[in-house]
Simulated assay, not measured.
Amino acid sequence: AGLRRVSGEVLVLAAELDGNPRPVLAAELAGLFRRGAVDVQPRAGHFPWLDDPGWFSARVERFLSSGV
Rank of each mutant, 00 (worst) to 15 (best):
L11R: 08
V12E: 02
L13Q: 08
L13P: 00
A15Y: 03
A15K: 06
A15R: 07
L17T: 08
D18R: 06
G19K: 11
N20Y: 12
P21D: 11
P21V: 10
R22S: 04
L25G: 04
A26R: 03
A26Q: 09
E28C: 00
E28H: 02
L29M: 15
A30T: 03
L32G: 11
L32P: 00
F33Y: 15
F33G: 04
F33C: 05
F33Q: 07
R35H: 14
R35S: 04
A37Y: 00
V38N: 09
V38D: 03
V38G: 01
D39R: 10
D39W: 12
V40N: 03
V40G: 02
Q41G: 09
P42F: 05
R43T: 03
G45I: 09
H46K: 14
H46M: 08
H46P: 10
H46T: 15
H46R: 09
F47V: 12
F47R: 14
P48E: 14
P48K: 04
W49Y: 14
P53A: 12
P53M: 10
G54N: 10
G54H: 07
W55P: 00
W55V: 09
W55Y: 13
F56T: 11
F56H: 06
F56Q: 09
F56Y: 13
F56M: 07
S57V: 13
A58M: 11
